[in-house]
Simulated scan of single mutants.
Amino acid sequence: MNGLPQYTRSQLALRNGQDKPEIWVAYFNIIYDVTESRLWLNGKHYEHWAGQDLTEELAEAPHTHEVFERFTAVGVLK
């Protein structure tokens, strides 16, 4: 993931599907763009909200980390 721009938690929080058109989530410090996913409409996916680090929350998800292979990594959470 070298070469990706770094973003703060505050910058990530703005990509929540409400404040800016981008919908981003972080997982293990990598930020993914989930804007095009119909499952993240309006920045919400089941009980999860975009614009934040979901690493801890996804430990109990019914899917594995491989779900992120479908999305483009756009940054690193600093």
Rank of each mutant, 00 (worst) to 15 (best):
R15W: 10
G3C: 08
E47G: 11
W24G: 02
F71R: 13
L12K: 05
A13E: 13
L54Q: 01
W24C: 01
G3L: 03
G51S: 10
M1T: 01
G17E: 12
L54A: 10
N16T: 04
I31K: 04
Q18V: 12
Y7D: 02
A13G: 10
A61I: 12
E56S: 15
T35Y: 11
H63F: 02
Q18R: 11
P21K: 04
N2D: 08
Q11P: 01
T55D: 07
L41R: 04
A59M: 09
K20H: 13
H48N: 15
Q18W: 02
I30S: 14
E36W: 04
A61D: 05
K78W: 06
R38N: 10
N29Y: 10
E36A: 10
G43S: 08
N16S: 02
A26Y: 11
S10H: 14
T55I: 11
W40H: 10
V74N: 02
R38H: 08
E47A: 06
V34W: 11
Y32I: 06
T64L: 07
V74E: 01
H45L: 06
K78P: 03
L54I: 07
S10R: 03
R9M: 09
P21N: 01
Q52H: 06
P5Y: 00
E47Y: 07
H63P: 03
T64I: 05
D33L: 11
G17H: 04
I30Y: 10
A26D: 01
I31W: 01
K78G: 09
T55H: 13
D19P: 04
L14H: 11
V76P: 05
N16Y: 03
Q52M: 11
K44M: 09
A61C: 13
G3F: 06
H45R: 08
G43Y: 14
Y46F: 13
V34R: 07
E36S: 01
